[in-house]
Amino acid sequence: MRLPNGYGTVYKLSGNRRRPWIARKTTGWTDEGEQVCQTIGYYKTRQEALTALSDYNKNPYSVEASTVTFEELFERLKNEKFDKISRSNQLGYTAAFKKSEKLHQMRFVDVKHAHLQSVIDNCDKGWGTKKKIKVLFNQMYAYALKNDIDVRDYSKFVDLGRKDIGKKREVFTGKEINLLWDHVERMDYIDAILIMIYTGMRPGELITIKNQDINLEERYLRGGIKNENSMDRVIPLNEKIVPLIEKRMSSENEFFIANHKGEQMRYWNFYEEKWKRVMEQLQLSHRPHDCRHTFASLMDSAGANKVCIKRIMGHASKDITDKVYTHKDIRELIIEINKI
């Protein structure tokens, strides 16, 4: 059957090929009167090639866009989006991308619901991690459609399954905190645990602190991640942990918590290699985020000012209108944090 003039052409290439059928479309002419052709793609059967040519004629698209892989699209999304989001969200997207490894080399236009669902179904992490993966899928389809990659958004059909209740956050008891103090000179990284308990910092925040962010003379540091309320906030230093911070600070390293190379420690290394070892040695059962909950509990039990607690922890509050701290503000925060 002859195709209409200007419609394009489909023909079979010679040799033993996995996809021998080619679909092409004339997109213009040179000054010498020669055709300028665009290759739509290569296909297993003539019918597949005809279908592709038909789809192209109905809705012309960028052939380059149709060949971009899942991994390449993520990199483009990353370059556009990461400068505008928090470090915590960056890590979340990156972790979700790693969990989607089986999709990395697939053309994005070939990814279907079954492929996305398979990533979720085979994820060995909890519901929260699966949710982050789905959010990544949502963002990638939105980016693809915005950039004229003609795909159907299958991410909306991904089923995360029943939400798990998850492990309840357990605060460190007074006895457990004393145990940490008893061993702080004998075991490495117990100091980091105590610093989180007495500052309310998230573990992801602690490892981003640079030595230049710490002001020992005025007893505070600047840091924080997550959102606009907690980023770059003033965190007063409880007098109990000042000696621990002073001892760990090193002029040789940029970061306060550094790895064996003197570089910033990754959360995975901190948790798997440092945190778990301390918990095992002291026969404790806690996760790093329990430190933050312990801080909130200690401050509440000590009757600390509620607004000060929110400022220190980086929680949003209608009583906090800006992030400008005066010396009076910092002194007040130090008074409150020393109540624990």
Rank of each mutant, 00 (worst) to 15 (best):
R169C: 06
F255K: 00
E217I: 15
E217D: 15
R186P: 06
R266Q: 13
H286Y: 10
D232C: 11
T173G: 02
G174V: 01
L206A: 06
E170A: 07
R248H: 10
H286G: 07
L221D: 01
V278M: 09
N211G: 11
E280K: 14
I190P: 03
R248Y: 08
P203S: 10
R266P: 00
E246F: 03
E228T: 15
N253W: 02
K156V: 12
P203V: 04
K274P: 03
F172W: 04
Y198D: 05
G174D: 11
R169L: 09
Q281S: 14
Y267N: 00
I193Y: 02
V184H: 10
L244K: 09
Y271K: 12
I177P: 00
M249F: 05
D232N: 15
I195T: 06
K274W: 06
L194F: 08
T199R: 04
I193V: 12
K261P: 01
E273K: 00
W268P: 00
L284D: 05
Q283P: 03
A192S: 07
G161Y: 09
Y189Q: 08
P236E: 03
G166M: 14
K226C: 05
V234F: 06
D191S: 07
Y189W: 09
D232R: 14
I177V: 11
R266K: 13
I235A: 05
I207L: 08
G200L: 07
N259Q: 04
K167N: 11
S230N: 11
E252K: 13
F270K: 09
K156H: 08
R162T: 15
E272T: 00
R219S: 12
I257H: 04
N238S: 11
S250G: 06
L221A: 03
E176W: 07
R222T: 14
N215M: 13
D191L: 04
H286N: 07
G223L: 02
I209S: 00
V171Q: 05
R186S: 15
Y271V: 00
K156A: 09
I207S: 00
Q212T: 15
S230C: 01
M279K: 02
E176V: 02
F255G: 06
H286D: 07
L194S: 09
S285V: 14
T199I: 03
L206E: 02
Y154P: 05
A192K: 04
Y189D: 09
L194T: 12
V278S: 06
N227V: 14
I177M: 02
S155V: 02
F172R: 02
F255W: 14
F270Q: 01
I241L: 04
D188L: 07
E254M: 08
I165P: 07
I177R: 03
I193P: 04
K274D: 01
K210G: 00
I225Q: 13
N229L: 11
G223C: 05
Y154S: 12
R202D: 08
W275D: 01
G262M: 11
W275G: 05
T173S: 15
L180S: 07
S230I: 08
E176Q: 12
N253D: 11
E273R: 00
R277K: 13
Q283M: 07
E252A: 13
I235M: 10
P203Q: 03
L284C: 04
W268K: 13
D164N: 15
K247F: 07
K156I: 11
K240A: 10
E205A: 07
W275F: 08
L194I: 15
L237A: 02
V234S: 08
I165S: 14
K167W: 09
